[in-house]
Design a protein around this nucleic acid. Structure first.
Lengths: 194, 194
DNA sequence: AGATATATAGACCGGTTGGTATAATGGATA
DNA sequence: TATCCATTATACCAACCGGTCTATATATCT
């Protein structure tokens, strides 16, 4: 069974993804998680900030793992990315456009207000970028080429997710899927002489 | 001189861009705008929601106008988009990564909580998409081709801005600039037989 | 059993939130 | 001058915020 600490973190992850940092009160976290309120400052003496940092780290790890596993299942990285975006689109639609992009909201909300949380978001995005980069390098791309392309992949995913949720349509994500796959294929073949 | 109503809206635009909806209190808006508090519910009987809706509309119009004027100054749409992203990158950097993407934060924050505000964001993004789409069509592209490409442009800009602000680097935006220009050029020439 | 440390209950704090009341302004019109 | 209406001042509200407190359980180890 999950400990109080784990329940708090998992619940916070979900709330941050759906409604963000400032809209998620401590009382709400306690209530939604079913954890005792007394445990809050026992496990997280740093208060709400510390909870958010841990939640961001947790979300980053989970996301990175899912992406890595997904990419590993496809021989062609372009196909891997394309199907990944389609899976994201499916999830966004299933949740009624309420979830998707676990980091976006917190990252933006805390750019100007909380250094520790924003640092966690930075590391999270770098971590995820590295996952894509490694996969591209495994397909023969140099690090100097893979890193920027991986960054483009990450920001394109984030942007498409943002618009899909806002517009209540999977079109942005499906559009981005095709364009990204095309672009990746182009960059891979141009270096290999397809 | 600006009326109290205009001052409130303009200030709210800025606050929404930098810190979002939930982090911007009514008192803060009043204080930052210099408008009298008594005027708040005189001009905006709908409360904070109405203020935010008007601010989103205002930001959308301003953004759409700036983009349209910028694109009109370039004979090649691909060049227009590329330089636009570079200008955004410059602004994001100048503000210390505190501003950029006037709609992103509000859009995400209100997806699950405020239908009227989210509707305003939807219309805003559709409006901006139309600006890009029109420019692409003026360059000879069909509507069926221009609309999806314009949507991709918008979501790529948003994603790159999001990551640039979070990572405190203009790299995502500069990367996206090249990627988008390349793609636009490809799609234009493929239909014209370049 | 006794002692010790971790974990939980839940009342409580000052401060702030969005929102509302009513009264006092001020300038235009008659 | 008297009237009128948009505008503004200011005090106020309940609800909630993040955070703290003390007392009590519940284990673990001696």
């Amino acid at each position: 069974m999950a400990t109080a600490r784990e329940k708090i973190i998992r619940t916070t992850c979900d709330l941050l993804e759906r409604q963000g940092f400032h809209a998620s009160g401590l009382n709400e976290i306690v209530q939604a998680s079913g954890a005792p309120k007394g445990s809050l400052y026992h496990y997280f003496p740093g208060g709400k900030t510390e909870i958010a940092v841990e939640a961001v780290r947790n979300a980053a790890e989970t996301t990175a793992r899912i992406i890595a596993e997904h990419l590993a299942a496809y021989a062609d990285p372009a196909e891997g990315v394309r199907t990944l975006l389609e899976e994201i689109a499916r999830r966004v639609e299933e949740t009624g456009y309420a979830a998707g992009g676990p980091l976006m909201l917190v990252a933006l909300e805390t750019v100007n207000s909380s250094e520790p949380i924003n640092r966690a978001c930075r590391q999270a995005y770098r971590h995820i970028q590295a996952v894509f980069s490694r996969r591209l390098m495994a397909a023969g791309m140099s690090e100097a080429a893979a890193d920027p392309l991986a960054l483009l992949i990450v920001s394109t995913i984030e942007g498409a997710t943002l618009l899909s949720r806002t517009l209540h349509s999977t079109q942005p994500l499906r559009e981005a899927a095709g364009f990204l796959a095309e672009h990746i294929r182009l960059h891979l073949t141009s270096r290999h002489g397809g």
